[in-house]
Write a protein that binds this DNA or RNA. Structure first.
Length: 545
RNA sequence: GCGCCCGUAGCUCAGUGGACAGAGCAACGGCCUUCUAAGCCGUCGGCCGGAGGUUCGAAUCCUCCCGGGCGCACCA
């Protein structure tokens, strides 16, 4: 989808194409920002693409299109057959007016038409504190949610968890062992249990709150320790997320699926459609026949459902809840699982675009050039909370979002700690602050910019800034549909950089009042876009620093 | 062995099939009696892992190879 300025060119070019090739095949006309000034403001490769079907050499076709096209621009043919467009200044200024007139609705697109979308992320079971890896997912999911809201979807943020079962029993027993240690009794942590120090802390808290000794790990004790552990850890998780500025609409318990009989229902549905078979006393999903990575067990030979079985039931439930699309944010280690769930939904004839997975790679921390090794099993990890407490929400969020999700994220602690503008999070925020500061000064001088004459914006830097502003809605759209929130971070950094350079070269509040008013208009749009971007990223846009 | 992802400047990374490949950090050198120098400008730095192929055109798409991550449980 093109930007305001690109659309203008595409429409003219489309007419020219029909004039030159009345019976030609339909083509998608692409217009993109030129990467060099001598190539104009925007370029199109239409002649190169349409050359073959037209049976006309690209340069010649380009010449013909150039003669046929009309609009507020000058056109040149260059290179192998590119059409380069040099926009008339008033047209560029119109893009600025457009942004300003939309005000804080600039960057909202009505593509989703209010359809309900669910984004599920984090979904860590309450067995321990959130790690930096969960942090990446939390920010990814939250920013993705914000992007889809801008796209016009009614977004629900969901956290899926399991607070029952074997893992939780092990957690309860591990906590109980720590608790008994405080009574001078030493026992090993159960096989596959939780070694982390956080259970020692929790045991101390519990010890301080109760006189009971719980000398035996009998059923009532297990139930009590399960409840204590789960509720306390869930509280931690919620606090960690709150510190990150992440809030969920729905906390969905896996146990509810079992209680409501949804797991059995799902199995019956799959059986009805012939999507399962029996082997070795277990029930298997015929995933491979439906695009899954491998056939997998749904019901164990002892009759208990597997995680996959429940996961399928969960996604059927999501569908029944009326979402038109669901996005699951997950780590890259769930690939087989994902393909199996998709295979199951295919067997059930769900719309193919109902479920998408936004997959991301892991996070490692780097300090003084060295990667810090983490191991959750041994209870040795950097918690998300420690990271936020040290760096603050905004820096953590910016760093977590600034890389492509599918690339491994190396979190540079030294750079993140830097208070200077080497730190990109600070740099972007400072651009916003700087503009705010100029507006304060303008207010003091009784200068406002209502109805300013934008045609006074004639500097090259000003026109470039306007073209960048014009791209904002499109950046949001592409970042959302391709699950690439890092594009927002890139965009913000680029816009901030352009602004700082402009600020340094051109004075906003000068002797020429009319010019000052025009420049304030430009700054007002930049501020609008920076604020919008920081909002999506979940960061503060401070008026002062 | 099989599947997915990654390999771009010394380091961390951008780069919707387009016209000489970009930024930050690091290194070096400049710019403040003026709106926040918490800033700006410049220099240095690359056979885009390798080899083929598709295309008018490839860092980008396809195949193979090399190197790294993750996964391949009747675990969750």
């Amino acid at each position: 989808m093109p930007t305001y300025l690109e659309r203008l060119i595409i429409e003219s070019l489309s007419e020219a194409y029909r004039a030159v090739r009345p019976d030609g095949p339909t083509v998608t006309i692409e217009v993109r920002p030129s990467d060099r000034p001598e190539f104009g403001d925007y370029s199109s490769n239409l002649a190169l693409i349409a050359s073959r079907s037209a049976g006309i050499p690209p340069r010649e076709l380009a010449e013909r299109l150039m003669k046929a096209v009309g609009g507020p621009f000058r056109v040149e043919v260059a290179g192998p057959g590119f059409l380069n467009f040099f926009l008339a200044r008033p047209t560029i200024h119109a893009a600025l007016s457009e942004a300003l007139s939309r005000s804080d609705r600039f960057g909202f697109i009505d593509e989703g038409e209010g359809k309900r979308a669910q984004i599920e992320f984090v979904s860590s079971n309450p067995t321990g504190p959130l790690t930096v890896g969960h942090g990446r997912q939390a920010v990814l999911g939250d920013v993705l949610s914000a992007l889809y809201e801008r796209l016009g979807y009614d977004v629900e943020r969901e956290y899926y968890f399991n607070d029952e079962g074997r893992q939780i029993d092990l957690l309860a027993e591990s906590l109980w062992v720590r608790f008994r240690e405080l009574h001078g009794e030493s026992r090993p942590i159960p096989e596959g249990g939780y070694e982390g120090d956080y259970l020692r802390e929790m045991a101390k808290d519990l010890r301080a709150e109760t006189e009971e000794e719980f000398s035996e790990f009998d059923p009532p004790t297990r139930e009590r320790f399960r409840r204590e552990a789960v509720s306390r850890i869930t509280e931690w998780i919620k606090e960690d997320l709150a510190k990150l500025g992440v809030r969920f609409d729905t906390w969905f318990s896996e146990a509810d699926l079992h209680r409501a009989g949804k797991v059995e229902e799902a199995l019956v549905e799959l059986e009805k459609r012939g999507g399962v078979y029996e082997k070795d006393g277990a029930v298997w999903l015929a995933a491979e026949r439906h695009g899954g990575a491998k056939d997998s067990v749904l019901i164990r030979s002892d009759g208990r459902p597997t995680y996959l079985m429940v996961d399928i039931a969960y996604h059927i439930d999501k569908f029944r809840r009326g979402f038109s699309r669901v996005i699951d944010v997950q780590g890259s280690d769930h690939q087989v699982e994902q393909s199996c769930v998709k295979a199951a939904l295919r067997i059930l004839d769900f719309p193919d675009d109902f479920l998408s997975y936004a997959v991301h790679q892991f996070v490692s921390l780097k300090e003084k050039g060295e990667i810090k090794r983490m191991s959750t099993r041994a209870g040795r990890f950097f918690t998300l909370r420690a990271l936020i407490d040290e760096l603050g929400r905004d820096v953590v969020r910016y760093f977590m979002i600034s890389r492509r999700p599918e690339a491994h994220l190396e979190f540079d602690l030294d750079l993140a700690r830097s208070e200077s503008l080497d730190n990109p999070a600070t740099y972007v925020k400072y651009a916003h602050t700087r503009i705010a500061s100029i507006f304060r000064k303008a207010a003091g001088m009784k200068i406002d910019h209502a109805g300013a004459d934008l045609s006074l914006l004639a500097e090259e830097e000003e026109l470039e800034l306007i073209k960048k502003i014009d791209r904002f809605p499109e950046v949001i759209r592409v970042a959302a549909v391709s699950f690439a929130p890092h594009m927002l971070a890139e965009y913000a950094l680029d816009l901030a950089r352009s602004f700082h350079a402009y600020y340094d070269k051109h004075r906003v509040l000068g002797d020429d009042i009319e010019l000052s008013r025009a420049r304030l208009s430009l700054l007002s749009a930049i501020k609008l876009v920076l604020k919008g971007t920081l909002d999506i990223l979940g960061m503060d846009a401070p008026e002062e620093m």
